[in-house]
Design a protein around this nucleic acid. Structure first.
Length: 897
DNA sequence: CCCTGGTCCCAACTT
DNA sequence: GGGACCAGGG
């Protein structure tokens, strides 16, 4: 009956070799995840290993969750206990939340508290780290122009990833700059310790240090975990490596899975030696190679292999596939970035139609080197009326309103967190200004108190004018009340008057086991929740959640259900028979939003931006409620918020996905576009000086190409604008293009046939006046131009179809979508004219250049230019007395004059 | 103290 | 395209 029959001989060997160290060199698409999940299932089912003694480490929550689901499918129902499948960072947080205080240095002076982090530590993200460095540099009077906080941070991170402390960095520094950085590193560390905060790198470092220094802790984990699996082993850095060694204990039951050709994180400290020298570390290791690719066609595989073969530092392998031949690798050379994106949108449209006819579920990905490239593709997809999803870029938790609320929660959880405190002390404004803050900062510095304590001291000693004191008091009381609510000791209920509806009345009961971080988080069972889902990314169905069936573990579900009931007032809250419900993070959030008037203030703004921020806040409350339903405490909620990653919100149900090449690792798509194949962009200019870094770019290219199952299309823009307004620059084709064997390539349209000899007169901002276009007087280069503003304006308003037949002369430049369509038609190729949502210009709206308008403040003027589409359009108007003004059509109360 | 608008400078990948 | 910072007026 065995599921082992579904494996090839090598995969089977990888699954069945359970004892001792194993290195699985798994080529792209060779069934790596399948092997890992089957191996776990095999251990449980055939070897009788207790699930909870298996630990699997991945790099993203997404991968962890997926693995968990697949294991569950294989062995589901066999046992309530589950293997622990977690990311490195999440795992480390759990280890630290349990035992970090074992690292405390006992104080030199008796009576003083020991120094070091406590269980209440918070996690600092990129911007928090930046604030710390800025603050330190300001205090030391360092010029942040010469040495930017960014540089300092990246050097600190580098040092940490190579396990150097400030002193070691100082000793090995060869120049003054590095010495300065070492000094700043030291100060940075002090600040974080004072704030009881850890940054991302610290999570790995401190957990490793903890296991190293405390034999008790180490033994606990060695007893607990008998079998260890490491995914993406080629991307592990030094701390991760040491962590692995420590967890492997004496047994060495380590299974590392990786592919040196897919190592793309050396800049994050990933050490390719970890994989290349595995046999040295574990001489008894067994090496298994998985070389059959089940994903791609032969053409794709061959193209990708040819590219990566140009690398020197690799073990080398022979990937093969039974999928002979296949569609050739498409290559499209676009005149510019806009066109590149439109081409992709057009091609995707056709592909989706054909796939639907074949009865397949179409899935396509557009991959790029830098996230900023996504903008053009997004615009193109919208033009074509295509639904797409962007992975990465600006995340939910980076939005200012979300960061504000998270910062409040951090301060409530850990008032020592000065960075978060500074962020919210006057947000929304409550009259605590620069001078007040400076006074408190000085007090803190002089007394050695935290900002929070200094604030209390300033109030007690009346160190400030009455006005400021009152403002400070209101802030202090806000935090104290929130803390009281959380601990269930808050006496009077908050007045519910915010936009979120009534805040749940705080419970008066004492917190207890279910969700209390101090108690629950340190039980061994804490690891059961590892494949977590967060907010919108929650994958289970609503029914599951409602029935409390999702986990299958009856007791927890029952307790949760009771907790829910009690919280909603459906049952008798006085009962002592069950753990009393704890006031949840969501309740605290509601209280905060209510008391600060955050949403109310946004409501009065009455702008679309404000509205979307309100929506985001509601989403955050939802996420907190989901968190509560999972029985999580505040610190667990904050940990998730800190450790959630971009790729985690990749949704495989989405038909079109836009993402960076890095984010695409581990995924597969029938159709893949690899865009921006230009020297300086890919390979990126920052890498081109060092050969090793170019090799990493090449591996990145390999990763991208091997994501494709059926069709791979490479694109490049002949001209590309680097920043919004600058002139476009001519590009040189990426070296990677030349490394693909020519017979494998099919050109999908070239510039030669396009429209020879036109001057570049536009940029694809479709409403740019013709005459002002930058002119590249290189007749050899050809491209289309968007020379006619009138046309583009029409097109923006959805009249594209009307225009389609107007331009027929072949001499005319292919300067708009319609013309391109025609061009393709004349060559027997189809190019669909994009669907543009029809938007009737309402009444006074839709001003065109040349029109006379009236503004309530500036009086009469003449429209000079129009940019953008619909009511979001920006209009530049010339007012006789005020000059040129750029106005958003929707808001400026313009009237026809 | 707070808000606004202008200007400057930046722009790789990510847990 | 946008975030950070600063000057100036309310």
């Amino acid at each position: 009956m065995s599921f082992l029959d579904k494996l090839n001989p090598q995969q089977r060997e990888a699954v069945e070799t359970t004892e001792g160290p194993v290195l699985i060199l798994a080529g792209a698409g060779s069934g790596k995840t399948r092997v890992i999940t089957y191996r776990i299932a095999y251990l449980i089912e055939h070897k009788g290993v207790m699930p909870e003694s298996i630990l699997a480490m991945t790099f993203t929550n997404k991968a962890a969750a997926e693995m968990g689901e697949r294991v569950e499918k294989l062995v589901g129902g066999l046992s309530i206990a589950k293997p622990v499948i977690s990311t490195f960072h999440s795992f480390c947080v759990r280890v630290l939340r349990r035992d970090i205080e074992a690292l405390q240095i006992s104080s030199a002076t008796p009576g003083q508290p020991p120094s070091g982090h406590t269980k209440k530590f918070v996690i600092y993200d990129e911007s928090d780290m930046q604030s710390v460095v800025k603050g330190v540099m300001r205090r030391l009077g360092l010029d942040d122009k010469q040495l930017t906080p960014r540089t300092v941070l990246s050097r600190i991170s580098w040092a940490k990833n190579h396990m150097l402390d400030p002193q070691e960095l100082y000793l090995q520094s060869a120049d003054q700059k590095t010495e300065k950085i070492a000094h700043l590193f030291e100060e940075y560390r002090k600040e974080l310790r004072k704030a009881n905060a850890l940054d991302f790198d610290d999570l790995l470092l401190e957990a490793t240090r903890l296991l190293k220094t405390s034999s008790q802790v180490r033994e606990y984990y060695n007893r607990r975990f008998q079998y260890l699996l490491i995914d993406e082993y080629q991307d592990t850095n030094r701390p991760q490596y040491e962590l692995m060694r420590m967890l492997a204990g004496e047994r060495h039951n380590v299974c590392a899975v990786g592919d040196e050709d897919q190592s793309i994180y050396s800049w994050r400290g990933a050490d390719i030696r970890n994989i290349l020298e595995f046999e040295k570390d574990f001489p008894e290791a067994k090496i298994i190679r998985l070389e059959q690719n089940y994903r791609s066609t032969q053409n794709i595989l061959q193209a990708a292999s040819s590219v990566v073969a140009n690398n020197v530092r690799r073990k080398g392998k022979n990937l093969w596939t039974s999928r002979q031949g296949g569609t050739k690798i498409g290559y499209y050379e676009a005149p510019d970035g806009e066109n590149e994106a439109l081409f992709a949108a057009d091609h995707v449209t056709k592909y989706m139609r054909e796939a639907a006819q074949r009865g397949e579920t179409p899935r396509a990905a557009v991959l790029y080197r830098t996230n900023s490239q996504s903008r053009l593709f997004e615009e193109a997809m919208r033009r074509y009326g295509l639904k797409y999803k962007v992975v990465g870029g600006f995340s939910f938790y980076e939005r200012s309103e979300i960061k504000d609320m998270i910062s409040y929660l951090k301060v409530i959880h850990n008032p020592a967190d000065s960075i978060s405190l500074l962020r919210v002390i006057n947000t929304p404004t409550r009259g605590i200004g620069k001078s007040t803050i400076e006074t408190i900062e000085r007090l803190a510095l002089e007394t050695g108190l935290s900002l929070w304590d200094a604030l209390g001291e300033a109030i007690r000693r009346q160190l400030l004018p009455q006005r400021s004191l009152a403002a400070l008091k209101s802030f202090q009381q806000l935090i104290l009340d929130a803390q009281a609510i959380l601990s269930g000791t808050f006496a009077q209920g908050p007045e519910p008057n915010a936009g979120l509806g009534a805040a749940t009345a705080p419970s008066e009961s004492e917190p207890d086991g279910v969700a209390d971080g101090d108690a629950a988080a340190f039980e061994p069972d804490e690891f059961e929740n590892t494949g977590f889902h967060f907010g919108g990314a929650y994958n289970g169905t609503d029914e599951e959640a409602a029935n409390g069936e999702s986990g299958g573990e009856a007791p927890a579900a029952a307790i949760e259900a009771i907790a829910r009931e009690v919280l909603t007032g459906a049952s008798n809250p006085a009962s002592d028979a069950f753990p009393a419900p704890v006031v949840s993070t969501a309740d605290v959030l509601k209280f905060l939003i209510d008391r600060t008037g955050y949403i109310k203030i946004l409501e009065t703004e009455d702008t679309p931006e404000a509205f979307s921020r309100i929506e985001n806040l509601r989403e955050l409350v939802n996420a907190a409620m989901d968190s509560r339903d999972r029985g999580e405490s505040l610190d667990q909620f904050l940990d998730h918020a800190a450790l959630i990653s971009d790729v985690d919100d990749y949704d495989e149900r989405s038909q079109i996905t836009l993402m960076s090449l890095h984010a695409a690792k581990g995924l597969e798509f029938p159709l893949v576009f690899l865009s921006g194949l230009e020297e300086g962009l890919f390979p990126h200019s920052r890498t081109m000086l060092q050969p090793e870094e170019v090799e990493e770019e090449r591996r990145l290219c390999y990763v991208g190409m091997t994501r494709a199952m059926d069709q791979l299309i490479l694109t490049r823009a002949v001209y590309r604008r680097r920043y919004g307004t600058d002139l476009p620059e001519a590009s040189v084709p990426s070296r990677f293009l030349e490394e693909v064997p020519a017979p494998l390539i099919e050109e999908l349209g070239t510039r030669r046939t396009m429209n020879a000899g036109r001057a570049y007169a536009g940029t694809g901002t479709y409403a740019r006046p013709a005459a002002r276009g930058a002119v590249h007087d290189d007749p050899g280069q050809s491209h289309y131009s968007y020379e006619d503003e009138d046309q583009s304006a029409n097109w923006n308003r959805g009249k594209a179809a009307e225009n389609r037949t107007k331009t027929t002369a072949p001499a005319k430049p292919y300067n708009s979508i319609e013309n391109i369509a025609e061009f393709f038609a004349s060559r027997g190729k189809k190019f669909t004219v994009p669907k543009v949502p029809l938007e009737e210009p309402t009444g006074k709206r839709g001003f065109r250049p040349g029109q006379k308008v009236r503004h309530p403040k500036y009086g009469e003027g003449t429209v000079y230019q129009r940019e953008g589409e619909g009511e979001e359009a920006k209009i530049t108007v010339q007012f006789p007395r005020f000059g040129l003004k750029k106005l958003v059509e929707k808001y400026a109360q313009l009237e026809r004059a």
